[in-house]
């Protein structure tokens, strides 16, 4: 171990060290590139790929086409260009997926740590978690639409309103698993020697939590986050069936997947595109998570 310190150049900062370790992780790099490409594509794509304007009657003649130069991903049952729709859809799905996941993970981790670390909060917070787990999802969502849709739309406009409502709805209904998992880990971690040591030298809880507990729950949180993105993208499509989501002519990956379902036997590419896009997103988030965990772990970092 003593040799190692001389062999490795002392990095300038901790962030830099983490980045250096992260860079050596092939999967993580792959994930970063794929995700970056997807994000670039959905942000810039609509400017680069403008589908030709045509009348309904003309578009209908071109329905359900396979991939071609004119329509790189083919057309759907109404003759709309799938590439353009995939790009539009990606913007919404990625935004919803990440924002909702972050809300869920943030709420879940906070509640989990508080409940696990402070015995006094454990009871009330976990009973709250039980309650949220028990609430039937669909009525809950329907109540949310009824109470908030028009109000939020009045404040920030219908599209932004729909977005806020969706991420809020998904976030609020999917933090419980993360909370339970984090709490379970924290219960075990807080009895570990180093936490006891920190406590015995009089470290305040906030410091113990941030420096000693949080870094050690990263790994299950990363898994929860990866799963959370996939779940949020799919849940969004369920919400639009309830009328809670975006207007029906607003494509999202989840909805394209569902719409393509009844055409799966005849035109399998209709489900392949959104399916691949969602899988790629989730896969790259997973690899980035893997890389981040390794990079954040000082035991691995020195190796």
């Amino acid at each position: 171990m003593t040799d190692a310190t001389t062999a490795i150049e002392k990095p300038a900062s901790q962030m830099r060290a983490i980045w250096q370790q992260f860079r050596t992780h092939k999967g993580a790099l792959f994930g970063l590139i794929v995700l970056g490409t997807l994000i670039l594509a959905v942000v810039l794509g609509p400017f680069l790929w403008v589908p030709e304007k045509m009348s309904v009657a003309k578009a209908i003649m071109l329905k359900n086409q396979g991939p071609s130069w004119r329509f790189p991903l083919g057309t759907d049952q109404l003759g709309r260009d799938m590439l353009a729709r995939m790009l539009d859809a990606g913007k919404v799905s990625l935004a919803v997926g990440f924002v909702a996941m972050m809300i869920a993970i943030f709420v879940g981790t906070t509640i989990g740590i508080l409940a696990g670390y402070f015995k006094r909060l454990d009871g009330p917070l976990m009973r709250l978690t039980d309650m949220f787990l028990a609430l039937p999802l669909i009525p809950l969502l329907l109540v949310m639409v009824m109470l908030f849709r028009d109000r939020i739309a009045g404040l920030v406009g219908p599209e932004m309103g729909a977005f806020l409502l969706i991420v809020f709805a998904i976030g609020v209904t999917s933090w419980m698993q993360a909370a339970r998992i984090v709490r379970g880990e924290v219960l075990a971690l807080k009895e570990r020697e180093y936490v006891l040591a920190a406590r015995s030298i009089g470290a305040i809880p906030r410091r113990i939590i941030l420096r000693h507990i949080l870094p050690n729950v990263v790994s299950p949180v990363m898994v929860a986050a990866t799963l959370g993105v996939a779940e949020a993208i799919i849940t969004e499509s369920v919400l639009s069936f309830l009328g809670l989501g975006f207007p029906p002519d607003f494509p999202t990956w989840g909805r394209l997947l569902y719409d393509g379902l009844s055409y799966m036997q005849i035109y399998p590419e209709r489900v392949i595109w959104p399916g691949v896009a969602i899988s790629l997103t989730v896969l790259s988030v997973n690899y980035i998570g893997d890389g981040l965990r390794d990079a954040l772990d000082p035991r691995i970092r020195g190796r």
Partner: peptide, 13 residues
């Protein structure tokens, strides 16, 4: 990853 990024309505069909 594929297992949980494709919803059951898709894998079932």
């Amino acid at each position: 990853m594929i297992g949980f990024s494709v919803p059951t309505f898709f894998s079932g069909t």
